[in-house]
Design a protein around this nucleic acid. Sequence first.
DNA 1: ATGGAAACGGATTCTCTACATCCACTTGCT
DNA 2: AGCAAGTGGATGTAGAGAATCCGTTTCCAT
Lengths: 222, 222
Amino acid sequence: MEEPKLRKDAVRNRERLLAAGRAVFAERGLDATLNDVAHRAGVGVGTAYRRFANKEELIDAIHIQQVEELERILTTALAEPDPWSGLVFYLEHSLAIQAKDRGMAQVLSGQFAQPRRYDWGRDRLAPLLNKVADRAREAGLLRDDVTGTDLILLQVALTTIASTTPNSIDANEPGDISQLYRRYLWIVLDGLRPDRDTTTLLPVPPLTTQQTHTLLGSASHE
Amino acid sequence: MEEPKLRKDAVRNRERLLAAGRAVFAERGLDATLNDVAHRAGVGVGTAYRRFANKEELIDAIHIQQVEELERILTTALAEPDPWSGLVFYLEHSLAIQAKDRGMAQVLSGQFAQPRRYDWGRDRLAPLLNKVADRAREAGLLRDDVTGTDLILLQVALTTIASTTPNSIDANEPGDISQLYRRYLWIVLDGLRPDRDTTTLLPVPPLTTQQTHTLLGSASHE
DNA sequence: ATGGAAACGGATTCTCTACATCCACTTGCT
DNA sequence: AGCAAGTGGATGTAGAGAATCCGTTTCCAT
């Protein structure tokens, strides 16, 4: 193994940069500059570029942590005894995170698509998410024409609202809007339940997992 | 009135530029360049800048046409005898247009927010859209906690999917994905109907029209 | 038909912005 | 103490889009 072992201050600065990166990318999205991140970390730009070859690499490092976070959420969702509650738990938490983390939302929605860069994360999360959907569907709590990939796409759609909304300073103030996405999440959830008079026959088939990943991993917007 | 009356070739070129602008902005979104548009119009850049002071002004001119188009759709929706069909008609058509016109989607979703620039259009469409929603709700065909602003926000969310999807050349080819957004539209529509066993109490109140316009008219993303 | 105002084309200039490097100086480690 | 490792931030570079300028062409009123 090649472990050049960093000096103590180098390790400390790497840590600071990661934390600052999370904060800056969360607030301003992934077009923030490595200079911005360095400043926030209280460190020179040169240092930033010695610790991470470029912005991509820093984003990758952060992305790994975030995938692990989502993995924990999915695991918890699967541990939930009621499959529907598990599904709701996942969507609520995943969206809550993305509402506060613009950068993460960008990666997960494929709006920062470096062609195959984030496949690793998707490959890791997809099976768990599919299990969440399958479990609910097989229990008769989720309409039977809906799959795990549908949850991804719906999440992408709702994330738009979550990130359009300003992150209020005080979420209790009247007129606070930071939770607005939850309103639409619950409308969607009602649309996903099977217990209704008439469930509409959906006009288009769902995507395969593969198609979904291709779509989100290669689309480039603005 | 001040009508400097343009020369015949100038009028023709203005027309070409408008058409080219619609095409280019539809395909590539609003970050396309006036140079791009000029090229597509078969016209020099200089000409483009003589006919339209800058990109903004061209976009404005196009935007006016598009608002009128939406107005016609809303009017037709209101003429529909069944209020629910009217609502569906509006969403289907509006989304279909935005799926093919990335630029329009950007303006309507507030992703190209020049602070108060597009208020005119919103002010003009909002009352009609509210009427569409009210009519359906009062007929008991739309859940009674849902308003016109909800339709706007849901539309914004669904537009994300519509514009993430590549505009297929041939919409009949198997594996075509250009209609995918309709799948989620219909899930949402099922969530909007009142005829179900349990309608969930929504966790957040709807936005006022004013709030919605502020939100979409000032948010900056990308 | 003709003269001159209007319009045209597109190479060119201007302005920004982000990325990345370089090197004189400082710090941590043995 | 000594030196490799690390640091800061001014500076260089590159690329992209906006807009202009001016020599040439086109329109149209007389």
